[in-house]
Design a protein around this nucleic acid. Structure first.
Length: 551
RNA sequence: UGGGAUGUCGCCAAGCGGUAAGGCACCAGACUUUGACUCUGGCAUUCGCAGGUUCGAUUCCUGCCAUCCCAGCCA
């Protein structure tokens, strides 16, 4: 976790050496217009770990300068997700909108200094005047108003004397710049919309390019680490900082955003999934949101580990979901207690096992960790095993149960199958087996070996439960590859959720508390859903090398 | 088409003039009371392409090519 990327080290070490910064102060500035997702986790991690690693400070700041998109629901969700991740904003929690007064004052200063002017062009006209990628823009006819006139007009904008969209305050930079962002960008607009925090106090709102550097500077941010699409905005960021004249200017650095295969991370699509009812909500376990991953059973540490492992660079990248899955398996293998669950039960009668006998088998909770202790699991004459652990016509490398074959029940006895009972359709309904009473320890005194070990649960003691299996929601590797004219829905996997009912679980699971994670032996890692206490969500399956062999 | 950025193994990613780290995935084998885990071995004579400089270039230069970002009064 502490081993952060060279990309970050290079930047910070150089800035420290140069004397640009003596302390490190970073921030995570989400716009409260949606829930945080695994891509956000990268931005959080980078800013948080940088501050932490260098003994600096980390802020959370809601970038709430656009009242029409933002909502308090998202603020609460973001805060709870951040708390869950454990990225503590030790520098404080701020709102960009709390700086509106300052932004306004600074704008007045910019106008006085001749760096900004009120423009009466409509948005369509402004677009025409802006030029194109290859052609320079033309100067607005309002560009050379006097400071006095601009001051008067801007104050009247603020006072609500003009219609929405009728005027803007623009930075006076260079209409011929090859960087479109520098062609006199609008920095204030007129917009009558109730702000979630400021109410109706304002009818003019600062735009991102103007507000963000001010927010950073005011908070004493030294390193404004953001994603790469803002690279083109850096000259403007620096322009604002310079023209306002902050003493300790922050520096912006960009890194590539995180993309994960088979995963949609665009808020637009995520919102669509929620609003169309295709998923249960932002925290549906199929969602790549932090709350979805949390409900699925992912741990904060596995998410941060994934982000760290994926690395930080400026290269466009599409990280394989397999890496995320590796991270959670790797962690849970060490920490999750083992339990037995039979997902597709078939009954086995152990014909030589005394009818009224019940034994308690002591099974370690985690063979990887002896401190995890053990538990007693009952066994009796009738048990359930996994239907797929028996084959009437076993192929060459299959070494589980079949008529005439012997296997071990995990934790205890060897059993041998003598007969498979079928119904009139030829379906196998029950297996008749015998056990070897001398193999209770899991080993045979005569030294004979079995090739397979299968999981089981006592039929008289088992509890019923529902298992939810999640598959990838999207069938397309990369949404960016969605062919022109095709529909997002076409790539939606309608069968991404499978609910298995009638699963038989070992009795100790009756006492499982919500939020506990288990490894169901030979099956996968599961998480007891706190929203539906009868269901276990499968976080991720165990690796299945048999699948490879048999195919 | 102007500007900016990026191109190293199937996927991430180190390297920054001295002869290609690591992880995921994959393959082979060992081990195994989870066909999991663990362990061992394998996996880029080559760094987008083409030239050039140099004793020597993934690293420097030149020219191409590809991909991404920018023409919101969104962030």
């Amino acid at each position: 976790m502490e081993n952060i990327s060279n990309f970050i080290h290079d930047i910070i070490d150089r800035d420290l050496a140069e004397g640009f910064a003596r302390r490190i102060h970073t921030r995570f500035p989400p716009e409260p217009n949606g829930y945080l997702h695994i891509g956000s986790a990268k931005a959080i991690w980078i800013n948080w770990i940088t501050a932490r690693k260098y003994g600096g400070t980390f802020n959370l700041r809601y970038d709430d300068t656009n009242p029409v998109k933002e909502d308090d629901e998202y603020i609460r969700a973001i805060e709870s997700d951040l708390r869950w991740l454990g990225a503590v904003p030790d520098g404080g929690i701020f709102f960009g909108s709390d700086y509106f007064d300052k932004c306004y004052e600074f704008a007045l200063g910019l106008i006085r200094d001749g760096h900004a002017y009120v423009c009466d062009l409509t948005s369509e006209q402004m677009r025409e005047y802006r030029g194109t990628l290859t052609q320079p823009g033309r100067e607005s006819p309002y560009r050379n108003r006097t400071a006095e006139e601009n001051l008067d007009l801007f104050q009247r904008m603020k006072n609500g004397e003009f219609e929405d969209g009728s005027r803007t305050l623009r930075a006076k930079i260079d209409m011929t710049s090859s960087n479109m962002n520098m062609r006199d960008p609008a920095i204030y607009r007129i917009l009558r919309s109730t702000h979630h925090r400021q109410g109706d106090k304002w009818c003019i709102y600062p735009l991102y390019d103007y507000a963000h550097p001010i927010q950073d500077a005011l908070e004493g941010i030294t390193h404004s680490l953001c994603s790469i699409e803002f690279e083109n905005h850096r000259p403007l960021y620096d322009w604002v900082i310079e023209k306002i004249g902050f003493e300790a200017p922050p520096r912006q650095y960009e890194f590539a955003r995180l993309n994960v295969s088979y995963t949609v991370l665009s808020k637009r699509y995520l919102r669509y999934l929620v609003e169309s009812g295709l998923v249960d909500g932002w925290d549906d376990p199929r969602m790549p949101t932090l709350s979805g991953l949390r409900r699925r059973g992912y741990t904060p540490s596995s998410i941060f580990e994934f982000v760290r492992m994926a690395g930080v660079s400026k290269t466009y990248s599409l990280v394989d979901v397999g890496m995320l899955e590796f991270c959670i398996r790797d962690e849970l293998n060490k920490t999750a207690q083992r339990r037995i669950a039979v997902t597709d039960p078939i009954k086995v009668t152990i014909t030589n096992y005394p009818e009224d006998q019940v034994e308690q088998i002591t099974i370690p909770n985690n063979p990887e960790d002896e401190n995890a202790g053990s538990r007693d699991v009952p066994i009796c004459r009738e048990i359930y095993i996994e239907r797929s652990d028996f084959m009437a016509d076993p192929p060459a490398k299959f070494h589980r149960l079949s008529v005439g074959r012997e296997v071990r029940l995990v934790g205890t006895y060897f059993i041998k199958c003598n007969e498979a009972i079928t119904d009139q359709n030829g379906e196998i309904v029950e297996l008749m087996c015998t056990y070897d009473p001398d193999t209770r320890s899991g080993h045979a005194p005569d030294g004979r070996k079995v090739k397979g070990t299968i999981h089981w649960v006592s039929a008289r003691h088992a509890i019923d439960a529902k298992l939810r299996l999640y598959d990838r929601l999207f069938t397309i590797d990369n949404l960016n590859d969605m062919p022109e004219g095709t529909n997002f829905d076409d790539f939606l996997n309608k069968d991404s959720l499978t609910e298995l009912t009638g699963c038989k679980l070992e009795p100790s699971l009756a006492n499982a508390s919500p939020d506990e994670r288990f490894q169901f032996v030979r099956t996968g890692y599961f998480y007891l859903d706190s929203k539906d206490k009868q269901s276990f969500n499968r976080i991720v399956p165990l690796k299945d090398s048999w699948a490879k062999i048999s195919k």
